Computed example of a mutant assay.
Amino acid sequence: MKVAIVGASGYAGGELVRLLYHHSSADVVCVTSRSLAGTPLDEVHPHLKGFTHLKFENPAPDTMDVDVAFLAVPHTAAMTIAGKLLSRGIRVVDMSADYRLPKDVFEKVYGVTHTDYFKAPYGIPELHRKECTNAKFIANPGCFPTGATLAAAPLARYAHTVIFDSKTGVSGAGDNPSATTHYPNVGDNVNPYKWTSHRHLAEMKQELAGLGSSAACYFTPHLVPVNRGILTTAHILLKEPMETKEAEKLYRDYYKDEFFVRYQKPILAAVRGSNFCDIMVESEGLRVVAISAIDNLVKGASGQAIQNMNIMCGFKETDGLDAAGMLP
C-alpha cells in the first residue's frame, strides 16, 4: 500500500516515517513540503538516515498516486485538500483539527470559516473503532483529548464534574522555536498556559457527551521541561461515592481487550516512543483521581494515526506499533 505524508517536515511527519518503516503493508512513497521541495528527508530528520532515500515534494493533490494520505498540516490547511484526495479514492487520516468538531463548534473555537465541511469519525479507536472501520476519512484526535478522554471514559457516566490537569512536553508546540519554547523559559520551570481557554477543551467536552455524560468539564495545560509526553490528572467528581477497588475493576474491565491501554502506574518515560496509554486510578469516595500517560507524538498524534489507518484498511491494529517504550 502506497502512503503519502502531507506536511512531513514537522515532528509528527518524522514520527510517521519512523513508525511506518516497520509496517508490514505500508510503503511511504511521497513526503511533501512546500518550502523544502527537493531536499532529502534525512536532512530534516537526521535520525532517519539509512532508512529512507525520499526527498520532499510539492505535488498537487490531484496528481498524488497513493492509497492513503496522512495530513500532518496546520488547521485550516487540511480543509483545502481533504476533499480533493477523497474524490480520487485516496483514504485520508487528518491530523489537523479541521474535522474533529461540528462545523459551528470548529468555527467558534478556531475563529475561521470552514470551507469544505463534512462529518468524520473521531479517531480514538478504543471508543470509536466501529465508526473507523472501513472509513474513507478519519479525524485524528488532539493529543490532550486523547490522554484526557481515555483517563475519564470508564467513569464518565458516573461523574457530575471532570477537571483535567495536563503536563506536556515541549515537542507538543511543534518544531518552530518561540519565546514559549526557548530553553531558559522552559528549563527548571512549569508554565501553565491558556488556563481556561485551550482549544482542545471542545474535543474533551464532545467526547464526554458522546459517552453519555452530562458532566461539566474543565481543562488547564502546563508546559514542563521534557521533550515528549503528556501526563494528565483527571479529577472525576462522582454523583455517588465509589471505592478504589470498584473503580479499578471498572477500568480493568473497560480496557481489558485494548492492547494500547495498560492499567499500571503512569510514567512518562515508560510510554516514550510508544503508542501506549498507561492509566491508574485511586478514589477517596466522591472524587476519583485517574492519571494517564501518553507520548504526545505517538499515541497523541502519529501512532494513533497509524492505528486508525490500520483499522480503516483492515490491517492488524498493532501493525507498525507493537513496540515498547524507552525507559529510562
Rank of each mutant, 00 (worst) to 15 (best):
Ala301Arg: 04
Phe118Glu: 02
Lys256His: 15
Ser283Met: 00
Asn185Ile: 06
Ser87Lys: 13
Phe118Arg: 11
Ala173His: 07
Pro328Arg: 08
Leu223Asn: 08
Ala234Cys: 06
Ile291Asp: 03
Glu258Ser: 15
Thr232Trp: 06
Lys265His: 14
Tyr254Gln: 07
Val3Leu: 07
Asn189Gln: 05
Ala8His: 08
Ile138Thr: 08
Val105Ala: 10
Ala77Leu: 01
Thr149Trp: 01
Asp253Ala: 15
Ala152Asp: 06
Gly303Gln: 10
Tyr122Met: 09
Val170Phe: 03
Ser213Phe: 13
Ala202Asp: 05
Phe70His: 04
Glu57Phe: 11
Asn275Arg: 01
Cys30Glu: 06
Gly14Pro: 00
Tyr158Arg: 09
Lys55Tyr: 11
Lys256Asn: 15
Glu243Lys: 12
Glu107Leu: 11
Ser292Ile: 07
Cys30Pro: 03
Asp98Gln: 04
Asp165Thr: 12
Thr32Arg: 08
His128Asp: 15
Ala78Leu: 07
Ala179Ser: 13
Lys49Ala: 05
Met204Lys: 12
Gly147Tyr: 06
Lys256Met: 15
Gly229Phe: 06
Lys119Asn: 14
Val105Ser: 05
Val28Glu: 04
Leu36Asn: 12
Gly14Cys: 03
Glu126Gly: 05
Asn227Asp: 01
Glu282Lys: 09
Val224Leu: 03
Asn134His: 11
Asn134Gly: 01
Gln264Ile: 05
Glu57Cys: 13
Leu127Phe: 04
Asp94Met: 14
Ser213Trp: 04
Met79Lys: 10
Asp104Ala: 12
Leu127Tyr: 11
Phe219Met: 10
Asn310Trp: 00
Phe276Ser: 05
Phe260Asp: 05
Ala215Met: 12
Ile138Glu: 11
Pro192Val: 14
Arg287Pro: 11
Ile291Ser: 05
Leu201Ser: 07
Lys194Asp: 11
Pro141Ile: 01
Val105Lys: 06
Ala37His: 08
Glu240Asp: 14
Val29Ser: 01
Ser33Cys: 10
Lys245Ser: 08
Ala209Thr: 10
Leu238Ile: 00
Val31Gly: 12
Met64Glu: 05
Glu107Met: 10
Lys265Gln: 13
Cys313Trp: 05
His198Phe: 09
Ile90Gly: 12
Val186Arg: 00
Leu48Pro: 04
Asn140Glu: 10
Ala139Thr: 04
Ala202Val: 13
Glu282Ala: 14
Ile81His: 12
Glu246Asn: 12
Gly273Cys: 00
Ile306Cys: 05
Ala323Glu: 15
Arg100Ser: 02
Ala173Tyr: 08
Arg91Leu: 07
Ala216Asp: 15
Ala215Trp: 03
Asn275Ile: 09
Val289Met: 13
Phe219Leu: 11
Glu43Ile: 09
Leu85Ile: 03
His23Cys: 07
Lys84Cys: 00
Gly172Ser: 11
Lys245Ile: 01
Asn176Gly: 08
Arg91Ile: 09
Met326Ser: 14
Glu243Pro: 10
Met1Trp: 00
Thr196Met: 10
Val112Ser: 13
Phe144Pro: 02
Ala78Asp: 03
Ala69Glu: 03
Ile90His: 02
Asn308Asp: 08
Tyr193Leu: 11
Leu268Cys: 05
Lys108Tyr: 04
His47Cys: 01
Met280Gly: 01
Val281Cys: 02
